[in-house]
Nucleic acid binder design. Structure first.
Ligand SMILES: [Mn+2]
Ligand SMILES: [Mn+2]
Ligand SMILES: [Mn+2]
Ligand SMILES: [Mn+2]
Lengths: 223, 223
DNA sequence: GTTCACATTTAGCCTACCCTAACTTTCGAT
DNA sequence: ATCGAAAGTTAGGGTAGGCTAAATGTGAAC
């Protein structure tokens, strides 16, 4: 009866969900930038999605997901994160390049397949980049970890999550040992947006220098 | 550089490949029927595929795949059959319903993923329905097995392959034990397209009655 | 050799999504 | 209170891939 959502619609909903995680409405231009589309294209799709009840659109003031829209978005997020986990754990996929594969597959796998993968993995709660995996009925852990960029000198933290959308960045992070569960100590930080210096692996770890833009992509928990 | 082929194009090429396996050109109406499209739609796509060099079109006389077209088709067939095998062997998928899942996934998986699946399976040469899996470079075993419908009373045969495109039919076949490698003995056959009676599992096996349409979907090798 | 049923193609239309260019609204700075 | 830059929307257009209805080609039957 209800036709399946198109790849395009699913990616819009997922993008809007991620933008509205940090509160408030999602702006047309933000959506356009993240999806690499012209703002005019976003306006067009947003009208359709408002029409279909997936979101509310206040012209000139952005969009918010409705209940059904949020559920649809979380279903896509679940598929994406389980796929990433499965590809890495069961098929030896590379931590850095798995995102792209999941970005396509998330629109092609059935719920049955996703649930079989989740089962084969023992129902994981986090994906390989530390992102929480929504449950089948659309619940998701609301972690609100600060980023490494906010930590002061002397802070001892555990790495919780990294942004997964740039393979190059992921490759670099992995080369430094900056993966979930790593223990970090901030040993120095330069003012005016200068780089942060951290020891990776606790007090005895290797030291490395991280620019602010990169540090902002790394979520940590105080220890 | 070369944009990936669309789902639609890949399904056209695969359908035309399957139709041209039994020699000669594929007719517009045959393609339309198999893909559940209007003949006019097929004519339109066929012109584009001829333009792009995937096939040769003699108006009013059907189409033939070119070398590149055949290779593209075999790549899709390889993806489909490896996916089916992987889903059944590694994820406990049902023999009957796996075709539908593979029909979508075959357009979304990367070559890297397919090769990792093939490796995890030990490079299988046949899919779960007995169909040969093309190699990475587009070679495929040319089996030319007769169908059960052509066997005379008394024939002892081994089941080699079954058509996989109807889940209901597959479910029925499995319930009778009619799966690849099963040993069959034809014990009776009625004239004028009447049903065939076979023992499944050799001389001592269960006997069952199979209509002609069904028997034509079952390929066997004499024993 | 004609005829005609059937296969095929053409013509015209539609939906989904994307684009650029032009126009409109908003809101912070003055 | 006004202005103008930035954000957002509207207008118009393109491609991909479907559809129906009408026109046309093919080939077997006569
Ligand atoms: Mn995606
Ligand atoms: Mn991830
Ligand atoms: Mn397909
Ligand atoms: Mn198969």
């Amino acid at each position: 009866m209800t036709a399946p959502l198109s790849r395009s619609v699913e990616d819009y909903l997922k993008t809007i969900y991620r933008l509205s995680e940090r509160g408030g409405a999602a702006a047309t231009s933000e959506i356009a930038q993240r999806m690499d589309l012209a703002p005019a294209s976003v306006t067009g799709m947003v009208k359709k999605l408002a029409e279909s009840g997936h979101l509310e659109h206040v012209p000139y003031h952005g969009v918010r997901l409705t209940g059904p829209g949020r559920l649809a978005a979380l279903a896509v997020v679940r598929r994406h994160r389980i796929l990433e986990t499965y590809l890495i754990v069961k098929l030896g996929y590379d931590w850095a390049s798995v995102h792209e594969e999941a970005e396509r597959l998330e629109h092609a796998v059935s719920d049955e397949l996703v649930e079989r993968m989740a089962e084969a993995l023992g129902s994981p709660r986090y994906d390989p980049h530390g992102a929480p995996i929504p449950t089948r009925d659309g619940e998701i852990e609301q972690s609100d970890y600060p980023s490494l960029a906010q930590m002061e000198v002397g802070a001892r933290v555990e790495l919780r999550q990294v942004d997964d959308d740039d393979p190059e960045r992921l490759r670099f992070l992995k080369s430094l040992g900056l993966v979930p569960a790593a223990l970090l100590v901030v040993t120095d930080r330069q003012p005016f947006g200068g780089p942060i210096r951290v020891k990776v692996g606790g007090e005895e770890g290797e030291e490395c220098v991280i620019g602010m833009a990169l540090a902002a992509c790394i979520l940590v928990e105080r220890r």
